[in-house]
Amino acid sequence: MDIRLIRSNQNEQYKRWRKLHRRKGRERYGALLVEGPHLVAEAMDAGWKVRACLVEEGKEGLLEEIPGIREGSFPVYRLPVPLFRSLMDTETPQGVAAELEIPPLGDEEAPPVGETLILLDAVQDPGNLGTILRTAEAAGAAAVFLGKGTADPYNSKTVRAAMGSLFRLPVRRVELASAILDLRRRGVVVIGTHPRAETLHFCYEYPPRTAFLLGNEGRGVDPDLERLVDAQVRVPMPGGVESLNVSVTAAVLLYERLRQKWGKA
Rank of each mutant, 00 (worst) to 15 (best):
G95F: 10
V96A: 13
A97K: 07
A97F: 09
A97W: 11
A98V: 07
A98G: 06
A98T: 08
E99L: 14
E99N: 08
L100S: 06
E101G: 13
I102F: 09
P103I: 12
G106V: 03
D107S: 13
E108Y: 07
E108I: 05
E108W: 11
E109V: 12
E109G: 08
A110I: 12
A110Y: 01
A110S: 13
A110D: 15
P111A: 07
P111G: 10
P111S: 06
P112M: 01
P112R: 04
V113E: 15
V113L: 14
G114H: 06
G114D: 09
G114T: 03
E115A: 15
E115C: 01
T116A: 14
L117K: 00
I118C: 10
I118V: 15
L119W: 06
L119F: 13
D121Y: 10
A122M: 05
A122N: 14
V123E: 00
V123T: 00
V123L: 00
Q124R: 15
P126A: 04
G127N: 14
N128W: 13
L129A: 01
L129N: 02
T131V: 12
T131L: 12
T131F: 10
I132H: 02
L133D: 01
L133C: 00
R134P: 12
R134S: 09
T135F: 04
T135A: 13
A136I: 03
A136N: 09
A136R: 07
E137C: 05
A138N: 14
A139V: 05
A139H: 07
G140W: 11
G140V: 03
A141R: 01
A142M: 09
A142G: 07
A143R: 07
A143Y: 09
A143Q: 09
A143T: 06
V144Y: 07
V144Q: 08
F145L: 10
F145Q: 01
L146I: 00
G147H: 11
G147I: 09
G147K: 12
K148N: 10
K148G: 08
T150Q: 03
T150N: 04
A151N: 11
A151S: 14
P153C: 00
Y154E: 07
N155T: 09
S156P: 15
T158R: 07
V159N: 02
V159S: 03
R160S: 03
M163A: 15
G164N: 13
S165D: 06
S165M: 04
L166M: 05
F167E: 08
F167L: 06
F167C: 08
R168Y: 07
R168N: 05
L169F: 08
P170R: 09
P170N: 11
V171L: 15
R172H: 08
V174G: 02
V174K: 02
E175C: 04
E175P: 01
E175A: 14
E175L: 14
L176T: 12
A177V: 08
A177W: 10
A177M: 08
S178T: 12
A179E: 14
A179H: 03
A179D: 02
A179F: 01
I180D: 06
I180Q: 09
L181S: 15
D182C: 01
L183F: 15
L183T: 03
R184W: 07
